[in-house]
């Protein structure tokens, strides 16, 4: 799979993840009712685990997906390293939150499951992008762009909801 396809797929998934977490954040801030077929979204979103040090997990997730989007769009080694690090961290933290939903809160939020799946897919794509022998990014497509090896800003890492 080419670097271009890996980056495009990662960016698309990150955009979807940002949209989902943005929706969760919007519902939280406005008090709007969440669309929920699993019946546990409100329980999860109003639980003690919905904040990390006072910051809504949805906000962390939104920031995390934006970081993944930037890393996916970015070129070069540092973008690949940043994307893989952020995606794997989000994958691990998402797994922990899934455990909390199942074992502690006893309620499951469909939106959280969706972001877990997206995170898993992005992590897999990021590892493919990082693998030895992966096609190198093409030479600078536009002379106006900065050096493709310039460090990309992955942004603050965050969980994915």
């Amino acid at each position: 799979m080419s670097e271009r396809i890996l980056r495009a797929a990662s960016a698309g998934l990150a955009a979807v993840g940002a949209a989902i977490t943005g929706y969760l954040l919007y519902a939280r801030e406005t008090g709007a009712e969440l669309v929920c077929t699993t019946g546990g979204c409100e329980t999860v979103q109003s639980s003690a685990y919905a904040d990390v040090l006072g910051v809504p997990v949805a906000a962390l997730g939104f920031a995390g997906f934006l970081g993944l989007l930037v890393a996916a769009v970015g070129r070069g080694e540092w973008a690949r390293l940043g994307q893989a690090t952020l995606a794997l961290a989000a994958f691990l933290f998402g797994g922990y939150l899934l455990y909390i939903q199942l074992a502690v809160i006893h309620a499951v939020c469909q939106w959280c499951l969706a972001t877990d799946l997206i995170t898993t897919a992005i992590a897999a794509l990021a590892l493919l992008r990082l693998r030895p022998g992966a096609p190198a990014p093409p030479a600078a497509a536009s002379p106006a762009r900065p050096s493709p090896t310039a460090p990309s800003r992955a942004g603050p890492a965050g969980p994915l909801r």
Partner: peptide
């Protein structure tokens, strides 16, 4: 780095 970041988030949670 990913494990450290995740551990940090889990701890903060």
């Amino acid at each position: 780095a990913a494990a450290a970041l995740a551990a940090l988030l889990i701890g903060a949670s």
